[in-house]
Amino acid sequence: MKYAYYPGCSMECNAAAYELSTQAVAKSLDFELVELEDWNCCGATEYFSQDELTASAVVARNLALVAPEMDQLVAPCAACYCNLAKVDKMMGEDAEMNGKINTALKAGGLAYEAGRVKIRYLLDVIYRDFGEEGVKAKMQQSLEGLRIAPYYGCQAVRPIKREDDTEYPMQMDELFSWLGAEVVDFPVKAHCCGGHMTQISEPQAFEMIRRILQSAVDYKADMILCMCPMCQLNLDGYQSRVSSYADKEFNMPIIYFTQMLGLAFGLNPKDLGFGKELVPALPTIEAKLK
């Protein structure tokens, strides 16, 4: 299997563990992620608060870069997925915007026909295209003994109502049940991590992060698995500051679902980017894994 691949800016550095483990897991499952040549930033949430049309054109350049022989584009980051999928959908529904976006693309010698490429997020690709049988066939190490909280965040499951429930998604839950882990019925699994609010209003952001960490503690999870670089950064990077804010010592490892998947596939933790998280995950895993 071959998919066009849009890594997104975070994967290059901040979420290097996600990129490493994504590539390693793809190799195990024997699918190829063909990186878009010279892709640009999706604009995150920031560009859309500046200029709707320009933000959409910036996103659409990436859609136009998908090679003609490819018809599926995979994004690991929820925010990138959301922007790519939203702009594609909007171009299909709004002829006026579609015309303007393509006029802008033409200034760069590009064009995009709405709906030509199916935009997907990585978890959905692994869950749907490989399924229980495909994933279990690669399992080398059962995840029995680990209690994990699956965290989906917002923008993979919303607003595009397509792959999973918008408030109670189950793909990650099922994926890790197949691998023997005990999956917590995590009530905040599709709540917001605070997004860019850490940069604007710390009390607001820290409260949103605290609710998620506290829920994982309440449900006695050993760690939280996430699928978005922004979520990982907020829950892991800001965890010590949220501990001070909440006057409570959180020590909750936050890793990407692909890292845990790689461990189940028998891959070396070093090749999966373990050690890049600020709250170390391996000691917990080693202590709990049977």
Partner: peptide, 8 residues
């Protein structure tokens, strides 16, 4: 923060 919960 664009979590889209209101929207859906």
């Amino acid at each position: 923060v664009s979590c889209y919960l209101c929207t859906t």
